[in-house]
């Protein structure tokens, strides 16, 4: 339902998004039957395609042409898909978006090759863009994305981290790719430097707000809503913002310590999720997400007036208020 509502917000882009969807199918086509199957498996799992949407909307502030801008939108989505396949190996995840992961259906090695194939395809695709700065932006983004993941692995089960540590981590893990989507869309369409800067910042703030909401939803949603087990991030040992804010509350602390020590029962896992759900941590996390949302909306205000401006505003509001 939420996905449908989101699609309504960018219905103007419907035909262009169909181009992107077809192009994604062409891009993942491989001479290897196994890679073909694994990549199509991922593609058919769908997804919000929110990153390509940001690329297209940002490009509307310059000389928009779907034929050239698809060379940015497609690789951005491929990078996102590739990182998810590799993440599932790291998290030992069996399901994503309600479907078996590549590593579950085949094995880790096949998942590694599928991710490598998609990353390489993404780079191959974006070389249609001749602006060398765009390549510096994307390569930097890919490295930062990795560093964010590395820090996440390093910080797992580490309770003595600060909110600042968390924010630096999600900046790299999530916000930077959304920010790059906006920046690259704008650069590739020849948008002026000032507008590029506002779009880049908009993407960054929306990405921060989006990830905080994602971390909240991990705790409050059901398995069905998430398409994966609820609370899986926390049970993996990822200390997210609601947990960080709630960690010292009397109802949370003992259960959280037991969980991190691996001595918690299945019933108490549910009790822990429930305790965090009703803690002040949840409220504080929502407040911080709202602060980032407001910053994003302030950036939108400074953009030149056009139809994309309203869409960016609506999508930002939707993403930060979504229920799952």
């Amino acid at each position: 339902m939420d996905k449908m509502k989101l699609k309504l917000l960018y219905s103007d882009l419907k035909s262009d998004l169909e181009v992107i969807e077809k192009e994604l199918a062409v891009a993942v086509n491989s001479s290897s039957p196994l890679l073909n199957e694994a990549s199509l498996h991922l593609l058919l799992a769908g997804g919000k395609r929110i990153r390509p949407v940001f690329v297209l909307l940002a490009a509307k502030f310059g000389n928009y042409s779907i034929e050239s801008i698809k060379n940015v939108a497609v690789p951005i989505e491929l990078i996102h898909m590739a990182s998810l396949v590799h993440d599932d190996v790291i998290d030992d995840a069996e399901t994503r978006r309600g479907r078996e992961t590549v590593k579950a259906q085949w094995n880790n090695r096949v998942a590694m090759y599928t991710g490598d194939f998609l990353f390489a395809k993404a780079i191959e695709y974006i070389t249609e863009v001749q602006n060398t700065y765009a390549h510096e932006v994307l390569s930097h983004t890919m490295i930062e994305l990795c560093i964010g993941e590395i820090i996440q692995v390093e910080d797992k089960r580490f309770l003595d981290q600060t909110v600042r540590d968390y924010l630096r981590r999600i900046k790299r893990k999530t916000a930077i790719l959304i920010s790059a989507s906006c920046e690259l869309g704008a650069i590739a369409s020849g948008t002026d430097a000032k507008t590029v800067r506002h779009l880049k910042l908009f993407g960054y703030y929306v990405g921060m707000s989006f990830q905080i909401i994602d971390d909240i939803l991990d705790i409050v949603s059901t398995d069905e809503q998430l398409g994966k087990p609820a609370g899986s991030d926390l049970l993996q040992g990822n200390i997210t913002l609601p947990v960080l804010y709630a960690k010292d509350e009397p109802a949370v602390a003992p259960l959280l310590h037991a969980m991190l020590e691996g001595t918690i029962s299945a019933t108490d896992q549910q009790n822990l999720l429930k305790a965090i759900r009703y803690s002040d941590g949840m409220t504080k996390a929502k407040q911080l997400s709202n602060i980032y949302l407001q910053k994003a909306l302030n950036e939108v205000k400074q953009l030149p007036a056009n139809s994309a401006k309203k869409s960016l505003q609506n999508i930002a509001l939707f993403m930060s208020k979504r229920k799952f």
Binding site: E136, M142, I143, L145
Partner: peptide, 12 residues
């Protein structure tokens, strides 16, 4: 992540 990181570095 090491493999992904080295890939990003070659591109950069």
């Amino acid at each position: 992540l090491a493999g992904d990181y080295y890939s990003g570095k070659y591109y950069q």
